[in-house]
Write a protein that binds this DNA or RNA. Structure first.
Length: 588
DNA sequence: GCCGTTTTCGGCCCGACTGTTTTCAGTCG
């Protein structure tokens, strides 16, 4: 509703308000708590705490929550009754053009638009033309099947392929991936590539001529945009070497992060754009990102943190760089309110993996095959955590078979040692949490295992309080070390079950239970906000592959990215620790 | 309509590309 009000106001040429509504809409969409819960907890005042939401928008949210509708939104829609979310998905259609199409041709939705385009009516409109009509026809096809985002882990191999290929062009001096891919978002909308070249035209030509390109959205001297056969949209921008850092920063985003940097630049009497940081006509910085942040009086900020969620403040350098306002800085220092930036866990810091399935249940590799693959992937230990009997469809292990499996794990360890490999396989379980919070295997069995993970695979629809109690009871079990994929979501398929995350975090802390970051590209569960919350609450985490085949250890990269987006350090991730230290932290 | 390392009033990020236009508006990121 907020987004639509913004679009409608934009349509009418109202200044500034559209951005205010858009920002508020984004803020509400990215809340970790339901707006309704916030309101029933703290009323209007609590809503106003949401960044970008002030008195007026808070009232509109209240109105929507209590009456189910909002008078201003209804009035605006009455004036221009169009399906905004549908029409604005069409490439090149913004609020102004949507308005013209409605006023002149009564276009209300995609079906109307298609009919008008087929009749040739659009080409005759002022401000449109033959070409506009053609473009609308083309993008109608894609708009129909939504502009869905794609999961990072699925797109990454393809992105790396394009990156490697374009990098080899003779005219290309450098080429990197920027945008949401560089920030390692869970899902990405498009791919932003940045190149340095003295012959941009050659780079543009080669880019749009790639065999996978199915359509060219734009082609200029330094910027082109294409769609490739897989459906990915790829943008390529070329800048001179002297602007590389500023351009990389600019195209990495996020938008909010960039806007904040520009404001800092303005406050210093400087101007920041994709070509550099400028004092008048003189470039002060821009060749590298490091020098750019430094010139702004900031520490370097890792791409995964650039979401304007506190990293800017944390990166601002101490007093010597903030000239003329010593008293303010000292005040803050005294209050200890500069949290500082975290030293993020590195992409090579994992030593183990605590959730691995084998061919004893629904996995595709033997215990030994999984162990050898994990070692190839750079790990020193894994826990075998096959499903428990409750998950009958996976042939889940009962008491008898899990005892047999423990014996097999011991034999595998011996064989590995015999062949001189320094690698340890731990016994474990992904034990089902039953409806009432009891576990699917008896305590005397769980006590024998090295690592016990517990997870929810049934009754996703329990009321929030009951679901929370269920998982808390599992944490109370003296053998349950880790809660696997704690919210149960599958990106693009299944929402998380209703559960009180802050309560789970507190209970995890009190019971010494670890929470998992499942690295599967469509799980990434916990998500970044909850990771930050857990760390703040003093809870330790584990990054696991949830591997079901030897090749699956490669997904750990996405789990690490997720952890980094949640501000996690090495000390927060127990499987980044040496084996003995990690084992020492588990419940007895 | 929102917000405050410049402000409670007066600002609000910035540039490339397209398609229409004959100097620019709209869209996009």
């Amino acid at each position: 509703m907020l987004r639509e009000i913004g679009l409608y106001l934009d349509m009418q040429g109202v200044a500034f308000k559209p951005r205010a509504y858009e920002k508020a809409a984004e803020a509400v969409a990215s809340l970790t708590e339901e707006a309704g819960d916030i309101y029933s907890r703290g009323g209007l005042r609590a809503l106003e705490e949401i960044p970008g939401v002030g008195a007026s928008i808070a009232e509109k949210i209240e109105e929507l929550l209590t009456t189910g509708t909002c008078a201003e939104h209804v009035a605006l829609r009455k004036k221009t009754p169009v399906n905004l979310s549908e029409l604005s998905r069409v490439e090149g259609l913004g609020p102004k053009k949507i308005k013209t199409l409605y006023q002149k041709l009564r276009v209300k939705d995609l079906a109307d638009l298609e009919a008008a385009a087929k009749k040739g009516a659009i080409a005759k409109l002022e401000g449109f033309g033959k070409k506009s009509e053609e473009n609308i026809k083309k993008s109608l096809e894609f708009a129909k099947h939504a502009g869905d985002r794609v999961m990072l882990g699925l797109a990454m191999p393809e992105i790396r392929m394009y990156e490697a290929r374009l990098r080899k062009l003779p005219a290309v001096a450098r080429l990197v991936v920027a945008g949401s891919v560089r920030r390692r978002k869970e899902t990405i909308g498009d791919v932003d590539l940045l190149a340095v070249s003295k012959k941009p035209q050659q780079v543009m030509d080669a880019f749009v001529a790639m065999p996978e390109v199915v359509s060219v959205h734009a082609k200029g001297e330094t910027k082109s945009a294409v769609k490739v056969v897989s459906g990915l949209n790829i943008d390529l921008r070329v800048v001179p070497e002297s602007s590389y850092g500023a351009a990389l920063n600019y195209f990495t985003g996020s938008k909010d992060h960039n806007v904040a940097l520009r404001q800092i630049a303005m406050n210093k009497g400087l101007k920041l754009n994709e070509y550099g940081l400028w004092k008048g006509k003189k470039q002060v910085a821009g060749k590298t990102e490091e020098e750019l942040y430094k010139a702004l009086g900031m520490h370097y900020i890792e791409p995964e943190l650039r979401e304007h969620t506190g990293e800017i403040k944390a990166a601002l350098r101490p007093i010597q760089d903030i000239q003329g306002r010593p008293e303010e800085f000292e005040g803050r220092q005294a209050q200890g309110k500069r949290p500082g930036l975290p030293t993020l866990i590195g992409y090579k810091d994992l030593r183990g993996d605590l959730q691995v399935q084998t061919d004893w249940t629904d996995g595709k590799g033997s215990i030994e095959a999984m162990a050898r693959a994990a070692r190839e992937a750079g790990l020193e230990y894994i826990a075998i955590t096959d499903h428990s009997k409750r998950l009958a469809m996976t042939h889940g292990l009962d008491e008898k078979r899990i005892i047999q499996q423990m014996a097999e794990i011991a034999r595998v360890n011996k064989r590995l040692q015999g062949s001189g490999l320094r690698f340890r396989v731990l016994s474990g379980s992904e034990c089902d949490i039953l409806k009432d919070g009891a576990l699917d295997l008896p305590d005397n069995i769980l006590a024998k295992l090295d690592v016990v993970g517990a997870s929810v695979h049934s009754y996703f629809n329990l009321p929030k309080a009951e679901q929370t109690k269920r998982i808390m009871r599992a944490m109370d079990n003296p053998h349950v070390d880790i809660i696997f994929h704690p919210t149960g979501r599958i990106i693009g398929k299944r929402p998380p079950y209703e559960v009180d995350i802050p309560a789970l975090i507190t209970h995890a802390k009190n019971t010494g239970t670890i929470l998992e970051i499942d690295a599967l590209p469509d799980r990434l569960d916990l998500k970044d906000d909850y990771i930050r919350m857990a760390i703040k609450g003093g809870v330790k985490l584990a990054i696991d592959s949830d591997a079901h085949a030897p090749s699956h250890f490669s997904v750990l990269e996405y789990g690490i990215a997720q952890a980094r987006r949640g501000w996690a350090e090495k000390k927060d991730i127990i499987n980044a620790w040496p084996l003995e230290k990690m084992k020492g932290f588990l419940k007895k």
